[in-house]
Design a protein around this nucleic acid. Structure first.
Length: 781
RNA sequence: GGGCGAGUGGCGAAAUGGUAGACGCGUUAGUCUUAGGAACUAAUGGGGCAACCCGUGGAGGUUCGAGUCCUCUCUCGCCCACCA
């Protein structure tokens, strides 16, 4: 029977009691086995939550409640990733301090989350914009600087004219536009701070194997790091210089008929070149081009020959021409290539435009020809041999570039260094951290490539910590990804002002055991892994990886199949659902919608279905009887077994459906009080409010959420008879009900008695019997 | 162009190689009603009066038996991409 109930009253009652009793506080001194369950913490936007946001939070809530009830001490915290452009842009538009806007947004988010009954330990709440927090973000930067993993560079970087700030490669869409504002990103030479993430490329790649992550996320990371095995080969030039090229195909060296340098290549500036004006013009023209224009694969190849200079092919001594062309990228490999038009499509196109020789050196069978002593050698064997012969080096290169780490915006962590005329870059002494963001009149970017901080002279002008002379503070700030690259560690020890994290506590809680989120397959996870490995190297953390298991979630679309957005007016606020249908119904529905990793459209009808289920549970005590039939006991224990397995593997949809099946059958058969209470415990992680209420109504004093999660009794879960399908010649012809342990003869005899089967057996002899007990009987006639 | 996934009813989806479509939504019929977008009962992949036949994107294959394994192919999604 459905039994409606006042969900709002029940939810309010228990949410208040839980908070008052500190039920969800993590015990840092517990002797229980630890488990760190973490959500990707949200950016508290002004829009508030829509019903899609809590999906992951519900999952971690179910999982951590389940684990707590299974005897684990669970660390399950929440915090705010609150630096970044949206807050700043909001502040500019509405003329309020970003801090004020962020505080307001956080209060709103927190209230929305509270209505869903999550079991977060709020005493560990963190906020990346809190100076006590970003003190340690700055501390990490100084440590990186100490180890030469942070450096200043003047190379051209991505500049977004819309946001008026430099960006990392990771912040660009694949079409070369800014992921925030959609502007076409330009290349602009400017001073910036860069982190040597490439130093960790190999470790980030190989340690992926140690992680329990979805394969497609690992693959996305491998793609992003983009390791290519190949060789560096030196080409001598006729003017005495040497150009080093990177190639993955050293076996084709004999087919290299010209050399191409990136227009930005440093040697280009140093050559005495006959057609220097033409070359300069081309270099200039390249600078003007956006990344999109330059990397558009379909367009005709352009370039300029460096006249008066030839290169010598080290394989055969041939003199070959040298070009600059924009299809060669300065920041990949060595910024120079040997061109093999016969075996590379791009080189072929270029050779075609410039009328250069095309020399085939590999057959269709991957065997070398026209390669002197290497003729007949396989490409695989030739690679090493040729590199050795010409004195090259086998090496690897990466698509990944160092991390452009400065932003010319206000709302971020100040980079804690001081520029001194005498001493150069001087780190702010550790004891002076945090370098707090000063108050400013205007947060608008200056547009000059300088941060708004540069306009506050009283803040900028300081004395050099080293020599005491006049110095200027660094006015660039860190990117939004900084604070989120280590926040999981702060949850372990959120109020420590002496260390980033206490080593004892770190050993107890790290790493994150289960990490849940979506949307950040590459950036956040790459950056966080990089910082974690660095923190490992300097002894702050004890594990080589931060997140052992990752569960990637699929989003919830609006009912119309589009993304929920203000623009489409299709946003559903969880507060409204909580009011109309109840938090438990919302939670059950979001877990039931489909596989956790699937993106599924919201369905109000589906939600009502979940609500009906919750209401049936509310009426289930009316079916409690003194002696339940064996069938009901069996059903309970099978349900327990399945629900436990499903929660463990994040298959929440089938966990819910299993419980639905149980309720359906228990309503018909009746169930004992003990089975009823076991079921309440089983459902408690999904519907914490109602189960708590029913638990109390059943006469219990303590919370259901500290009860032991039910365990299946395998003996009681066993069926004694089972229906199995019967096939004749592999086609289904009926079914028989037999004992689970029935032998083959019994099964065959039962099949012969079954009318629907028997008619196929008439006048035929059984040649072969395939009998899989409990599964299938197949008779071959 | 390269890589990784995924294709099952009207919809979200289940299914250690063993009666495909559990569970939920929707739909249909009925019951009860102070007529409501409530609840309950039953039916619900397609075709056929029926016995039966056909069905997991398509074509082959392995197997007593294939949604599941193998080969080829089509479509969609995601990631990377003038990356040498």
């Amino acid at each position: 029977m459905h039994k409606k109930f006042d969900s709002q009253a029940i939810e309010k009652k228990w949410q208040e009691r839980w908070q008052a009793s500190g039920l969800y506080k993590t015990d840092g001194d517990s002797n229980k086995e630890k488990l760190f369950v973490l959500d990707m913490f949200p950016y508290p936007s002004g829009e508030g939550l829509h019903v899609g946001h809590p999906k992951g939070y519900i999952a971690t809530d179910v999982y951590s409640r389940f684990k707590k009830m299974s005897g684990f001490e669970v660390l399950h915290p929440m915090g705010w990733d609150a630096f970044g452009l949206p807050a700043e842009n909001f502040a500019i538009k509405h003329k309020v301090h970003p801090r004020v806007a962020v505080e307001k947004n956080i209060a709103n988010f927190k209230a929305q989350l509270a209505h869903l009954g999550f079991n977060y330990d709020w005493s560990r709440e963190i906020n990346t914009t809190d100076p006590e927090y970003y003190k340690w973000t700055q501390w990490i930067f100084l440590k990186l600087l100490e180890r030469d993993l942070a450096y200043e560079s003047h190379e051209p970087i991505n500049w977004c004219p819309g946001c008026q700030t430099g960006l990392a490669n990771e912040d660009l869409e694949s079409d070369g536009t800014c992921e925030r504002c959609g502007s076409v990103v330009e290349k602009k030479p400017m001073r910036q701070w860069v982190l040597k993430i490439t130093e960790y490329a190999d470790r980030m790649l190989s340690d992926l194997d140690t992680l329990n992550w979805p394969e497609h996320i690992k693959e996305a990371q491998r793609n992003w790091i983009g390791r290519s095995e190949g060789a560096e080969i030196d080409f001598k030039l006729t003017n005495g210089e040497v150009v080093t090229v990177f190639t993955t195909r050293p076996d084709t060296l004999f087919g290299a008929t010209y050399l191409v340098l990136a227009p930005e290549h440093e040697l280009v500036r140093q050559f005495p070149i006959e057609n220097i004006d033409e070359v300069k013009a081309y270099v200039e023209a390249t600078k003007q081009k956006s990344e999109i224009d330059r990397t558009n694969a379909g367009k005709e190849k352009t370039g300029v020959e460096l006249k008066g200079i030839k290169a010598v092919n080290p394989a055969n001594g041939e003199e070959i021409p040298v070009f600059i062309a924009d299809y060669v990228l300065a920041h990949y490999g060595t910024g120079a290539i040997m061109a093999v038009p016969a075996h590379d499509e791009r080189d072929h196109d270029f050779a075609h435009v410039f009328g250069l020789p095309i020399k085939q050196v590999v057959t269709d069978d991957d065997v070398l020809i026209a390669s002197g002593e290497f003729d007949g050698v396989s490409t695989e064997d030739a690679k090493k041999a040729i590199v050795e012969k010409v004195g090259g080096r086998m090496t690897a290169t990466y698509r990944l570039n160092d991390w452009v780490f400065s932003r010319q915006r206000y709302w971020g962590e100040p980079i804690p260094v001081i520029h001194c005329e005498k001493c150069g870059v001087v780190p702010v002494p550790y004891e002076e951290l945090p370098v707090k963001l000063p108050e400013v009149e205007h947060y608008e970017p200056t547009g000059t490539g300088e941060s708004p901080l540069a306009t506050i002279e009283s803040w900028v002008n300081v004395s050099c910590p080293k020599c005491g002379g006049p110095g200027k503070r660094e006015t660039n700030t860190m990117p939004q990804w900084a604070g989120s690259s280590w926040y999981y560690l702060r949850f372990i020890d959120p109020h420590n002002d002496q260390a980033l994290v206490d080593p004892q506590k770190e050993k107890k809680w790290a790493p994150v055991d289960v990490y849940v989120g979506g949307d950040h397959a590459v950036r956040h996870l790459i950056y966080a892994r990089f910082w974690h490995k660095f923190l490992y190297d300097i002894g702050v953390v004890s594990t080589i990886e931060p997140f052992m298991r990752l569960e990637f979630l699929g989003f919830i679309l609006a009912e119309d199949g589009r993304k929920m957005s203000k623009r489409w007016g299709n946003i559903i606020n969880p507060d409204d659902i909580v009011k109309q249908n109840g938090a438990d119904a919302l939670r059950v529905y979001e877990m039931f919608m489909g596989p956790f990793e699937n993106t599924v459209a919201w369905s109000t009808n589906g939600l009502v279905g979940a609500q009906r289920f919750v209401e049936r549970v509310n009426g289930l005590n009316e079916h409690v009887i003194d002696d339940e039939p064996l069938e009901a006991t069996r059903s309970l224990h099978k349900t327990i077994r399945k629900v436990r397995e499903d929660i463990e593997s994040f298959k929440f949809n089938t966990a819910v459906s299993t419980m639905m099946i149980f309720v359906n059958s228990a309503e018909k058969s009746g169930l004992s009080k003990s089975s009823y209470e076991s079921f309440l415990k089983l459902l408690a992680p999904f519907a914490p409010h109602l189960t708590e209420e029913l638990w109390e109504a059943a006469g219990h004093v303590g919370s259901i959420h500290v009860e032991n999660y039910p365990e299946a009794d395998e003996e009681l879960a066993k069926d004694d008879s089972v229906t199995i399908g019967v096939q004749v010649n592999g086609r289904s012809r009926g079914a028989i009900l037999i004992a689970v342990d029935a032998d083959e003869n019994t099964a065959v005899e039962a099949a012969k008695r079954e009318v629907s089967v028997a008619k196929y057996l008439e006048g035929a002899s059984i040649k072969k019997v395939i009998y899989v007990p409990g599964r299938i009987l197949n008779l071959i006639i």
